[in-house]
């Protein structure tokens, strides 16, 4: 512990100040200072993450009136809510819909974002700022507001999209009334809202690939497609996987778009975990079961995060 005590010279102590000086010494230790300085962050993390998570787990074990543990028939007492969910068709539909929504939306966002980033990267620097600013707009508008705008565009009575379709002779589409169209609408809005985030991350990653690697590849005989495949993508792999993980977490937990656009309808077929948890817990008043629904997001995301971050660490070790 010599290093810990090395920050300040130790004063010769007066006979009756032994206690004070040892306190002073404790306060001067680097480890003490480090703990003190992390306390605000720890408080925030405990208050906003650990406590709600723990409380959520506790809630999920209670019965509807929250007077005791939820009894289970084949699972131990306290896990009764999960038992009911496992047996519920709606719940499995929600789980299925959450996965379809999150995975397809993230893939589409990544593709659109990558395409936009590539386009931007090849615009001369002068015009680039203007386009970058404009393309970021969807991401900056609060999604509840922009989703309302989309809702109008999808609304069967005033749908501007359907009006356009009519003008060019395409049959009208029941955007929010039919389950696959409603699911697609939610994905479209989510992609529109989230793609700029991918764009800006990928643009930064593209700019960090040294130009000479492309030149070396061009001389080595690579076509532009091969340069993308063998230089750009491997060089961006870390950013791509971290962005995808981050977006997967946010998209999986998405609430506002579903809530505003379809409110889970038609027939609960567009619910995702968050909107279904809200419906069960708040609207139907069964808070413990709502908590149990929302807890299902955690293991799925934890597994994704584990694999993505493991890949990132491995690549970092090899390349950086």
């Amino acid at each position: 512990m010599a290093a810990d005590a090395s920050t300040a010279p130790i004063m010769p102590s007066a006979p009756n100040s032994g206690r004070a000086s040892s306190l002073q010494r404790l306060a001067r230790r680097r480890s003490t200072i480090a703990v003190l300085m992390t306390i605000p962050l720890l408080v925030v993390l405990i208050g906003l993450v650990a406590y709600p998570a723990g409380y959520g787990i506790y809630l999920s074990t209670l019965n509807r009136r929250m007077t005791g543990f939820m009894e289970g028939e084949w699972l131990p007492n306290g896990l009764g809510n999960f038992e009911i969910l496992f047996e519920s068709e709606t719940f499995w539909a929600v789980a299925w819909q959450s996965c379809i929504f999150a995975i397809s939306a993230v893939i589409l966002k990544a593709l659109v974002g990558f395409w936009l980033a590539h386009m931007l990267h090849h615009i001369p620097a002068k015009g680039q700022r203007k386009w970058r600013g404009m393309l970021l707009v969807p991401w900056v508008i609060p999604p509840a507001l922009s989703t309302l705008g989309w809702w109008w565009m999808f609304d069967p009575a005033y749908s501007s999209i359907n009006w356009l379709f009519q003008v060019v002779g395409i049959p009208q589409v029941p955007w929010l009334g039919e389950k696959w169209w409603a699911r697609l609408s939610i994905i479209i809005v989510n992609v529109w809202y989230g793609a700029p985030f991918f764009m800006i991350m990928y643009l930064a990653a593209l700019k960090s690939v040294p130009e000479q690697l492309y030149e070396a590849a061009a001389i080595d005989g690579a076509t532009s497609w091969q340069r993308l495949r063998y230089v750009t993508l491997p060089m961006m792999a870390n950013i791509i996987s971290i962005t995808v993980l981050f977006s997967l977490i946010v998209t999986f937990a998405n609430y506002d778009i579903v809530r505003v656009l379809t409110n889970g309808g038609p027939r609960d077929l567009t619910h995702v975990f968050a909107s279904y948890a809200f419906q069960v817990g708040i609207l139907s008043g069964n808070i413990p079961r709502g908590a149990a629904v929302s807890l299902f997001m955690f293991p799925i995301l934890a597994i994704c995060a584990f694999f993505v971050l493991r890949g990132v660490t491995r690549r970092n070790k090899e390349q950086m």
Partner: peptide
């Protein structure tokens, strides 16, 4: 042709 660059331009991956 083949070229050797000042900063080598080896593919890091």
């Amino acid at each position: 042709i083949a070229m050797v660059f000042q900063n080598y331009a080896l593919y890091p991956h």
